[in-house]
Nucleic acid binder design. Structure first.
Length: 402
DNA sequence: TGCAAGTCAATACC
DNA sequence: GGTATTGACTTGCA
């Protein structure tokens, strides 16, 4: 990394925009600003090749990019041209296949990314804008293939040479870490039972004390580090899942998405059940997206306090099993469009700022027709809003079923 | 010191 | 063989 900047987190890059910036960076930034949506076509002009420092400049100075559409486009181009994630990761992003897969499948919204986290998206955007992007990768792929074949040929002949010299045929290759005196630590594979126990412990205590970690590691026969790592990873992945909800639902039709089960905070679950309507009109699909985006918004603003009690958690599985019945019951109980006592002053109010007026979402529903089904949905949405806001003010706990 | 964010890389899965 | 998942690790921050 360059001496005057830090690649990750917290805006440590202390650069003066547009003053010290090298010419290529300025040109690239201008081109990103010009068109924030990814584009690819014959009219694109060749880009200057950005350096590592340029990328960091861009991450710091770039306007907001649409990470979802960037990854969507990248996936499309890679798939259409039969280019693998490994190749793309190696040659374009400087990341491994697993990281590329993760990034493409679960892009974080731009605003949630650290400077370092933004770099791959800058690289993707620049790659998409490069008119020769596919050709370049294809060429590299061909060369790679040839190199592989050459390596294979060499290794075969080397084996034959060894054999002819009387060397053991099972002699380890120099790539083998054991040859270099490095003993590879075998990967820990947690059993389903282990994971179940850890998940249950997480529900009760997402940030376990040292004592809890030790007791869990004893109980499961794992190293304390493994238990701690599991909690770190699980928290991080749960958070990401929450962020995904909005992004994923934008591109997913309700028919593809019968049940949404996600944690809204580290210890709070939301279960959204698709209503059994055979077909949804465009406006109704929009409504589903809207409500999920609202959930996403809320999730980012909800308190991280412990909203579960251990007693409730014991019944979690039962509750999940009986969701359909509960859903009907809850919906019908609240179907009377219950007034929301927190609407006016809640810091995360989703309802109209003017009391008595309908929200944009409500208007949307009214505009799209006044059928009974829509009324039920409106009531259901009221219920969602009401409960989200209750949770935001910590006045209601536990599982939410909509 | 504990945490989040980002990533690697082994393994599972299709 | 390509992609997805996930335990482990590094880095930087508060």
């Amino acid at each position: 990394p360059p001496p005057n900047s830090s690649p990750s987190q917290g805006g440590q890059i202390s650069l003066t925009p547009y003053i010290d910036m090298k010419e290529p960076t300025r040109l690239i930034l201008e081109s990103i600003k010009e068109n924030q949506q990814p584009s690819q076509g014959p009219h694109s002009l060749p880009q200057p090749v950005p350096s590592e420092l340029d990328i960091q400049h861009l991450a710091a100075l770039s306007p907001e990019l649409d990470t979802l559409s960037i990854t969507k486009k990248v996936k499309e181009v890679l798939t259409n041209n039969n280019l693998g994630q490994r190749l793309f990761g190696d040659m374009v992003l400087g990341l491994t296949q697993g990281s590329v897969s993760d990034l493409l499948a679960r892009p974080k919204p731009w605003s949630k990314l650290s400077l370092k986290g933004r770099e791959p998206f800058i690289r993707m955007q620049l790659w998409l804008k490069d008119p020769q992007n596919v050709e370049k990768l294809r060429e590299i792929k061909k060369m790679d293939l040839r190199a592989c074949m050459k390596r294979h040929y060499n290794s075969v002949s080397a084996t034959m040479d060894r054999d002819s010299l009387g060397a053991p045929s099972d002699m380890p290759s120099m790539q083998d870490p054991s040859v270099l005196g490095v003993t590879k630590k075998p990967r820990v594979l947690l059993s389903t039972h282990d994971k179940d126990v850890l998940k249950k412990a997480y529900q009760v205590e997402p940030y376990p004390s040292q004592k809890t970690v030790e007791s869990l590691s004893l109980q499961l026969g794992l190293r304390t580090n493994t238990v701690s790592n599991w909690f770190h990873n699980y928290r991080s992945r749960m958070r990401r899942e929450v962020e995904d909800v909005g992004l994923i639902n934008v591109s997913m039709t309700p028919s593809q998405n019968p049940i949404q089960h996600c944690s809204l905070s580290t210890n709070m679950h939301v279960v959204v059940i698709k209503q059994e309507t055979p077909e949804l009109s465009e406006s109704e699909e929009e409504m589903t997206k809207d409500s999920m985006q609202q959930s996403k918004y809320m999730s980012a603003h909800l308190p991280a306090g412990d909203l579960h009690t251990p007693e409730d958690l014991q019944d979690e599985e039962k509750q999940l099993n009986g969701l359909n019945e509960k859903h009907v019951e809850t919906t019908s109980k609240r179907a009377g469009s219950q007034p929301n006592p927190f609407a006016a002053d809640s810091p995360v109010s989703l309802t109209s700022e003017v009391p008595g007026e309908t929200t944009g979402l409500q208007r949307h529903l009214v505009d799209s027709g006044g059928t009974q089904k829509r009324s039920a949905k409106m009531a259901n949405l009221d219920n969602i809003i009401f409960r989200l806001e209750q949770a935001a003010t910590k006045e209601e706990t536990l599982e939410w079923e909509f």
